[in-house]
Structure formats: C-alpha cells, structure tokens
C-alpha cells in the first residue's frame, strides 16, 4: 500500500511535468551553464586542469539538484495542494517516498546529459568503467536527494527557503560529495582503481540507508503542524 501511494504521487508529478517540462528544462539548462562556467575557469590553453573533472561533475550535480529541489515543492505551494496531499488518507512516509522517486528520476535525467558533457569538455575517460560509475552516481544521487527532499519539504512554509535549502543541505551531504568526488577520481586515473571506487560506493550506500531510514522516520512529525 505505501509503495503504491508513492508510485501514484510519482505518476502525478510526472504527468504534470511532462505537460510543461518546466523543472526538467530549467534544471538541465542550469547544469549545462554550470559546466560552461567551469570550463572557462578550468580549461587553460586547450587542456583541462588535472583531476578537475570529478569535482566539476559532482558540483554540477549538487547545484542543479538544489535548484530542482527548490522547484519540486514550489509547485505544491503555488497550487496550494500541499495540505490536500498531507490530508490524503495515505501514510506520510509514502508521500515522502513518492517525492523522492521523482527527485531521483529528475537528477538521473540531468546526469545523463552531464556525464557525457564532462567527458567531452574536460577530456575525462568517464566511460572506462561504466558500471562502477553508474552505481556510484546512483548511490550518490539517492543520498543527496533523500536528505534534500526532506529539507525541501520542511522548508516549504519558511519565508527564507531559497537561501536556507543550500545552507542546511550542503554541510549535511558533505559525506556524499567527498565519496562521490573521490570515487570518481579513482575511476578517472590512467589505470582505474576499482577497489577504491568500490569502497567509496559502500560508504555512500551506508549513508543512503541511514539517511532514508531517518527521513522516513522524521517526515511524519516534521510535516505535522
């Protein structure tokens, strides 16, 4: 039952998004703009600064993810549908899960564009170990989105939400960023360090499990007025 509710919420958000493509197109364009700014800063005389690609990829993911998080609940606020959503006879954690699925899907779509662009603009061999990179990106995205979705939901009623979201989110998700950047740069070496990358994947996955459990547990008291 909770899982079905989560999928229904995902379907609702997906149908609204497909009609306008508002969040997806703006997030994608923002992510690409980020990469362009970085490439002006870090590509000198035709060749990129050493080891910059991993950091740039993850910064672009975090920035565009923050932007998307701010917009996901904005729609509920504008339409004044948040209360209706919370009043629905559905378990609260299912609502959180539905929003989280949507967020992860959105961030994945952005990454599908970001990763090839980073590989292209910074001459990074990102596709030398595609499976490991995919798992690392998936685990990192879930970790970032799980904490982000909770904070974005809590901040819906706050006046200063635009500035508060990054202030709260970045310090808390630093373990994900460290693991993501370190794991990706292990894969980008001339001879990819698979053991190192696997260890970072294990650390992010543990973070994911702890964060999602905590979020499911806290969503109910946090969203009760």
């Amino acid at each position: 039952m909770p899982f079905r509710v989560a999928l229904l919420i995902l379907k609702k958000d997906f149908l609204i998004e497909v009609k306008s493509l508002e969040i997806l197109s703006t997030t994608l364009f923002f992510a690409v703009s980020c990469l362009l700014v970085f490439s002006f800063a870090f590509v000198k005389e035709g060749s990129p600064v050493q080891d910059a690609a991993a950091g740039i990829l993850w910064i672009a993911i975090a920035f565009s993810g923050t932007l998307a998080l701010g917009r996901v609940f904005e729609r509920e606020r504008y339409g004044e549908t948040l209360r209706a959503l919370l009043l629905a006879p559905a378990p609260r954690p299912a609502i959180y899960l539905g929003k989280l699925f949507g967020m992860v899907l959105l961030m994945f779509t952005t990454e599908v564009v970001l990763v090839p662009m980073v590989a292209l603009l910074f001459q990074a061999p990102l596709f030398s170990r595609p499976l490991l990179l995919f798992v690392l990106l998936a685990a990192g995205t879930v970790g970032f989105a799980s904490v982000g979705t909770l904070f974005a939901a809590m901040l819906v009623r706050a006046r200063t939400r635009d500035i508060m979201l990054p202030i709260l989110l970045y310090p808390v998700t630093i373990p994900v960023m460290i693991a993501g950047v370190q794991g990706t740069s292990a894969l980008l070496q001339a001879s990819p360090d698979e053991a190192m990358a696997t260890m970072w994947i294990a650390i992010v996955s543990t973070f994911d499990v702890v964060a999602i459990t905590l979020c499911l547990w806290m969503f109910e008291p946090l969203m009760t007025e």
Binding site: V147, L150, F151, M154, L155, R157, A158, R159, T160, M164, L168, P171, V172, L214, M218, P221, L222, E225
Partner: peptide
C-alpha cells in the same frame, strides 16, 4: 533565527542529522 514559524522542528532535524 530566520526560518520563520515552525523553525524549531527544522532545526531539530538539523541537529539530529548533525
């Protein structure tokens, strides 16, 4: 300080995550 009404709960979540 700046979270507006309901910021007690927000900050509580922050402390637990911290």
């Amino acid at each position: 300080k700046y979270g507006g009404p309901g910021s007690e709960k927000l900050s509580a979540a922050m402390a637990i995550f911290g």
